[in-house]
Structure formats: C-alpha cells, structure tokens
Design a protein around this nucleic acid. Sequence first.
DNA 1: TAACTTTATGACAGCGCTGGTCATTTTGTA
DNA 2: TACAAAATGACCAGCGCTGTCATAAAGTTA
Lengths: 341, 341
Amino acid sequence: MKVTIHDVAARAGVSIKTVSRVMNNEPSVKQATIDKVNQAMQELHYQPSAAARNLASTKSYSIGYIYDNPNAYYVIDMQRGLLDACRRHGYELLIHPTNAKSPGIVQEVIDLVQHSRLAGLVLTPPFSEMPEIAEALSSINVDFVRIISGSTPSPKQTNCVLVDDFTAAFKITNHLLELGHSQIAFLCGDDEHSSSGERLAGFKAALTKRGINANPKFIVPGSYSFESGVKGATQLLALPNKPTAIFACNDEIAAGALFSARLQHIEIPQQLSIVGFENSPFSRQTWPPLTTAHQPNSTIAQSAAELLFKHTRPGNHSQTEDQPVFIPELLVRESTAQVSS
Amino acid sequence: MKVTIHDVAARAGVSIKTVSRVMNNEPSVKQATIDKVNQAMQELHYQPSAAARNLASTKSYSIGYIYDNPNAYYVIDMQRGLLDACRRHGYELLIHPTNAKSPGIVQEVIDLVQHSRLAGLVLTPPFSEMPEIAEALSSINVDFVRIISGSTPSPKQTNCVLVDDFTAAFKITNHLLELGHSQIAFLCGDDEHSSSGERLAGFKAALTKRGINANPKFIVPGSYSFESGVKGATQLLALPNKPTAIFACNDEIAAGALFSARLQHIEIPQQLSIVGFENSPFSRQTWPPLTTAHQPNSTIAQSAAELLFKHTRPGNHSQTEDQPVFIPELLVRESTAQVSS
DNA sequence: TAACTTTATGACAGCGCTGGTCATTTTGTA
DNA sequence: TACAAAATGACCAGCGCTGTCATAAAGTTA
C-alpha cells in the first residue's frame, strides 16, 4: 500500500542510500545502478515522502507561493503551473495569500520561510517588485524567483522570469495600425505595477515607429479594474475627436470600455476597436469577444518553479539559460476591425 | 532561530511529553499546566513542525482541498477560509485542482490521500455531490467534509456543511415580489449542480406562497456562465409577454442577462430588474451593480475545516453541532427596482 | 602485481515529533 | 492517615528520509 525507499532499494537490489543518491542525482553512482533504481521506482510507483525529506534534510522540498492579487484567474493559473512543476519534481507547494501592504509584511515572509523551511519562493507582482522583500530574502539566504515585466535579461537579475509586455504591446498596437487606425487611445493600469508602464512604452514605441505622435489626451491613467475601464472609455468617447481604437491595459479594463461604448450605442468593432491584454476568461465573456494578448500564466509559473529547482541544486548556473522571457502572443478576435473612414 | 518542542518544554518547565499532550489535547493534563505550556508556546512563537508530526504520527496534520471549479473567485475564497482554519490549528493545506470528469478520478483521490497521508479532505461541488467519491473515501476510512446545497440537517449526512440555497432564493424572490413584480423569470445554472435545483425550488416556493403560478416559459435551463445568461435573457426578452424581473442563478448569468438587456436598450432597473446570486466580484463589475445573495464562501470554508478537525479528534461528536447551515443573505443593490406599471 | 588513488556503495545516526509503557509524583477523598 | 486516582516524566522505538563516514570495488601507476 505505501511504498517507501526500502521497497525500492530491495527491488533494485541496492541500499536505501543509493536510492536516495539517485533521487537527488548525487554524483558517484554508476549509470547501470541509476537505471536499475529508476526502473524499480517506476515499477512500484514510488513517490518520495515530502514530509520525511523535509524533516531529514537541511534543504527542503517545498516551495512557497506568496501572492496578493485581486485577479483570481491569474492566481489560479499560477498555482496550476507551480503545482505541475512541483509534482514533476516531488516538491510540495505552500500557498500563502497575504496583504502586500501590511506593515509587517517582510517579517511575515521571513517567518514563513523559516518556519516552513522552504526551499524557495516564487514571487509575482506586487511582491516581485518590492526591493525590501528581495533584500530580506537574500539576507537570509533563501532562493527565490521573481516573475516580472521586462524584455531584456540582465545579469543583475539572475533569478527572474521575464514577461515581455513591451514587445507584446508593440505587436498589439501594430495590429491596430495595420487595420488603419491612427487615433488610438491607451487605458493604463495601476501605476505601481510595472507591467502597465511597459505596455504603455510598447504602445508608444509602435506609434513612434510609424511616425505618429501619441496624443496625450489619449493616454488615460487608471487601474486594473472594470470600473476604471468604464470611466476611462467614457472620458475618451466624450472627446471632440474620438479615438477609433482603444488599447486597454488588461481584459478587465477592456471589458469596462466595451461596456461604456455599448452604453453610448457605439458599435464594436464597426465604430470602435477595443483590445485587451492577458487572455483571461474575461476576454471571452464579452460580446464581441476581445482581441487580446495571450499571457501563458501557467507556463510562466512552471518555468519559474523549474528555475527555482535548478537553483536549489548545486552546479549548472549558466547566466543566459536562467532568464526565460515570455512574449504574450497576439490573439485576434472580434473586437477589432478595419478602421471605418 | 528554530523553536522546537524542547524549547517549549524547557520554558514551561515540563517534559516534552507534556507539551505533546497539550498540543494534541490528550486527557489527564491539569489546566494550570495547559496554560503554562500554551503561554510558553506563544512567547516563543512556537509552531509545531508539520513535517515531523506527519511523519511520526499515524494520523496526519494536513488536509486536502480537491476542486474542479471554473469559478476562480469561488476557489480563491475557499482556499482563504481553509488556510485560515489550518493556520489556527497548525495544519497544512494541500490544494489539488483536478478534473472531476476524468475516468480515473476516484483512484486519483485515493492515491492523493494515501500518499500524502492526509488527515482529511474538504470537498466542494462537483466532488461533494459524487457518491462514488464519498464511498471510496469511507471505504478507506478517511475523514472528509462536504459542502453541499441543502437546508435541513439530516442525521445521515453528519459530515456536511450546508448552504441553504433554498431559503436564500426564497428571500430573493420575496424581494422581487415586494417590489411588485409578478412576472419573474428564472435562469438556471448547470443541472448537475444541486445548487441550481435548490435555488429554483426556493424561487418556486416563494411564488406559490403568494399564489402565483410559475410560468413554465419563464424557467430557462442553462449553465453557470456569462454566455448562458446572454442566451437565456435574449430568449426571455423576445417573448410576447416579457418578464419584469429576472432571477439569475448566479452573478455570471446575471451579468450575461444584464448584457443582453443592454443590447436591446432595455433600461435596468427601470424596465427590468435583475438579481444574481453569490456576491462574487462579478456582481460589482456590472453597471448597475447587481442585487444578489451574499454567499460567505470563506466563512463556509473555515467552518468546513473546523468540522474536519473536530472529527479527527476523539470524542465530541454531537449530531446537531456537526451540521452548520449557512443562509446566503440578500444584498440589495441597484439592479432591482419597483415594477413599473 | 603491489601500492595507491578514485569511484561506488553501504552502515548508522538523527531530523522533530508521536505513541507506548512504566515509574514516579502530586492531588483528592474517605 | 491511608489509599485510590490523576498528573507528569523518563525512556524507547520509529516515521522515511538525508548526511557523514567507513568500506568495498574499480581503475591507475610504476
């Protein structure tokens, strides 16, 4: 019923220590032995006990995911990706939702790591963008991987997974430009999230490349919420020279913009094109469904976890390999169309 | 840095065995001793090592949450509630998203429980409504608590937390009736979820009580999705005698209905009242915000976890106490108004 | 082929805690 | 005061695994 390391050892005809070595791919094991052990593990469906490993080892076999994100879809996707990676490597995942703005947050994170003896931590915004967290973690010598917005791997941030919001926004904007739009407005997300800034930068860059100057009135500050989208779009659509397309910083904002346009009996996409960002379920729950950029959150999460596991192991720390970059892909649906002249 | 049971014992001036006794509230410990130990634990911020306890004990100190629910908001709320309860009792939470319709699902659940040596499981729909899961779990003698739709505690289901959808739906319907509506339509959720049936029953009961016969055309089958709401409402609003109010089985459906009404230039709530159910973020992301029933998911989850912990302990198994019932509360917002004659 | 280095493997203690068994001390009660 | 009952401690094994060190097998050199 319960398969332990002893069963595997017996089956493979080796000592439990050797099985342990194989599991942790320690050096000095003959290839033949490795194969024997692996086969025995497979045949017995052996799964090492995370509890026992945590207890016995100085290093640990669970990683933590700390988050504070109102976007439930995002969190769920991240969890799934992390969980998948953990299962593959026999790690456990400890989830820790909390309040990033709480004053004792740094201590809270440290306590968590120390008490649960975590092997490492995965951080998403806003935690991944808080220098005090990174410093605290480094000071107690805990591995962590940050998922942040960025396009160019830098040697300073060796423990990052980058999401290239800039390039994705550039591509989305190009899509609108190719449809003939030139009067394009931008609805920003929260200032604190660097993703919003990156997306705006990509947007501007695409315009500039075509020799178009971004109309300052077309760049509306806001936050990552439906309400913000409603408000921003309402403001834009009251302008004497309306935009013919709106680039919303995420799908929620876009849904709000869509809603606002509807209220004003503006036909989407005939009279106004709207794009979102993220490809969250939101973007499919509008009518028409939103053109957006697909952000593969679950894959990003897996990649972050793998990076963490690699760090935990000794050896292989090649600079370049260690910085995966994800570029969200343009996903054209029905909320965008050729500009009507 | 790391506080163990020995530190606590030293500080409290007792043996580690006594500390252990206190932690597991075993009998034959003086109250004064209990207090001393508890104080020492607090002062040292002692947290027992779940790994060690799991390893040493036949019973375990982690519980699992198995789910397969497309509603990310619901899942996140549940996790939070479970996590809170776990922290209070020094348990760990293992989350396990999976596919309820996968053929090997029963075996998968069993494997999970056995491999991770779980103390118990919390099940939400659809798992809580799958008899084969309950049977399998009982047969291997694992504690579990189901969160299900229901109003009357029954001695058969001693391990359930009930959400009284019937009464809540009854109240919501009454709210509409009190506003003068009599032509009320109902947009159903998925058939497989008993919540949908319960809500419909509550709806019908309220009508019947006022001597109103539910118009069969006003009861539209569907599923818990935005699209379903759009479709259902479109169908209803095409009827020669339109309803003056729509009771949607959840907020997503209601949002869809709202969307459909908007498309047809029907003013909400002046020309049509719409209510949702759940008080999910959805209900605040529409305009006007939805009147709905607040379902305290996080509290429900906590209650389920507490119930599980109580079961795990020896003793106290009083039938009545063991079946908490939650009645979602009416939350009146701007999507409902007096019927216009 | 002996002498020695390197590589491969095993024996054993111990991680922090529980569960059991007894022995001992403290308390309550007749 | 005597005695049963309750409270506590001392001690040991063991959960499933890792870390350390000792030992055995293999490879190398002269």
